[in-house]
Design a protein around this nucleic acid. Sequence first.
DNA 1: GGTACTTTTTACATCGTTGGAACAACGTTG
DNA 2: CAACGTTGTTCCAACGATGTAAAAAGTACC
Lengths: 335, 335
Amino acid sequence: MTVTLKDVATLAGVSVKTVSNVVNGYAFVKPENRRRVEEALAATGYRPNVGARNLRRGRTGFLALMVPELSIPYFGELAGLVITAAQKRGWSVLIEQTQGTRSRERETLSSLGPHLVDGALVHPEALEAADFPSPGEIPLVMLGEHAVDVPIDHVAIDNVLAAQTAVSHLASLGRTRIAAIGRNPARGTSSQRLAGYRTALSAAGLSYSDALVAPAEKWHRSVGAAAMRSLLALPSPPDAVFCFNDLLAIGALRAVAELGLRVPEDVAIVGFDNNEESAFSLPALTTIAPDKTALAEAAIDLVHRRITGDKALPAQDIQTPFALEIRESTRGASA
Amino acid sequence: MTVTLKDVATLAGVSVKTVSNVVNGYAFVKPENRRRVEEALAATGYRPNVGARNLRRGRTGFLALMVPELSIPYFGELAGLVITAAQKRGWSVLIEQTQGTRSRERETLSSLGPHLVDGALVHPEALEAADFPSPGEIPLVMLGEHAVDVPIDHVAIDNVLAAQTAVSHLASLGRTRIAAIGRNPARGTSSQRLAGYRTALSAAGLSYSDALVAPAEKWHRSVGAAAMRSLLALPSPPDAVFCFNDLLAIGALRAVAELGLRVPEDVAIVGFDNNEESAFSLPALTTIAPDKTALAEAAIDLVHRRITGDKALPAQDIQTPFALEIRESTRGASA
DNA sequence: GGTACTTTTTACATCGTTGGAACAACGTTG
DNA sequence: CAACGTTGTTCCAACGATGTAAAAAGTACC
């Protein structure tokens, strides 16, 4: 039932290649023939067989995007932006979910043959340097996390500086017992945000205490709530908390409310990611807002550059901007 | 650099076809040869060229999923589940975003050639019957919305019944001025939920009033907040609101809080979709919880059945289960 | 050893497309 | 008008895999 170049060629009375030339915008086709081919194309409703074309061209027209889970708002938002940015360049995006486990991440990475996709954007959570494929495979761009010592393109915000900005904001409000939620030694992001936290503390003349840093294996809302409960149960509980992402912060908000305390009067809270929902929580969440659009576009840009040319370019490390979005959870409700 | 069947064949000292046979699990291969081929496969790290294989087989191994926007939590969650379900059947999923506009939906639908994907799951928002491609194209399964008079497979919950359940719940709490947010004549989902709303009202002996039904073009949080504000400004404001999705409800919660009123004491609120965030809002949101996993799996099941065989099967209409999830926004906080 | 049958392997064509070379038609130029 | 460059078209091979059918190798039986 499907129409091929051959069918179009027969109808137009020219060779297959001439039709191919018209389809691909080759300049030297007699106007008369071009017209007839175009008519035949329209009449038959021809659509190129992408698979065959790519087999011939050695390109697939697909990019892979590897993320932990689409149901996590940050990744849902990011994936949406990546798809939009990729589409502008003529790519379709294939999404792979890893649940953030190292084994699934490795598996996914190694399954990305050069035949399946032209390149991949990966947002690792647990990968280690050794897991990366030998260079020379398909172009890879890492998002958000920096696995050390891997010479691979990388796009992210400055996590350390962003965390520092968030915590400095809390200190500037006069808070002195500033806690953190989200420690997880297995995740590079966690270490970076922790580093920023410590820097900001010492810059503000506050001392660091292990007791105020709550671990969180998964950065989910329920984990944030549990962590907050245990922080509030301390002999001298915190008067501010920096959560390593918005989900943890949303959970923390709930834990505070359940104990009958107020945000920000009793505890000020800052999140990280600026999920859409965070502008509508009660109170609305102060948070670090990475420029996700810039992130997505920079990543697509990089992978595009790798694929078309510059194979030899040394690995890039691009930082995209962020901003501190101050809302009710630290500022208080505006009258 | 990439390894083809030919390379493996040379190494193993057999023909290309024998290697192909081993790869595809053909029964009649001498154990000795099978062993040698398997060794060669392992040694070379052979990976089939998906494009070539599919060109030959006439299948692509891809499914398309068309949704309005991944950044909307419901679609992020759904997409995640669809990808997982598809993966179990060996499909990769390509995501297309339409922003919910009719033009982008039509465009997307018509670009889904049979060469690009084996089938598609579409979640239309604005499409009309006329926009659907002639049957005989690729298998299509519609999610969530029922464009009338199109003989296409369809999976959704019973929207009318679900809405009715939600509103009956409000009535059972003794609320008498029950409003609704989300009217949008262009969207089938809206009409269905409105129908359920009206049914429940009359079942409870309550009268319907146009003034209590707030329109909402986009079902986003900010729209819900605005709609709620205008409802609360009525001469006799509602004591309960049924929002057509959770985002509207989250917005409504905020509007109520900003006016210094309490949920559920002053206004009880019910949402629809059971987004993950809704279990953590303050107060937590009572909502209709569709079984999204069942939805995703039923859809994949259907498209799978269409692709492998049953072309002639009449269009299916499958209803997946839902439940009313009662939380603080109607029940009140548990002591 | 020959026949008939089964198992195993191979050669070849093919999927739909595009790159390259060969070829044809054309107008220009000397 | 022969030689030439430019334009336009066609033919053929190739991308990497698999289906088909035929060839080759075994096996069983008389």
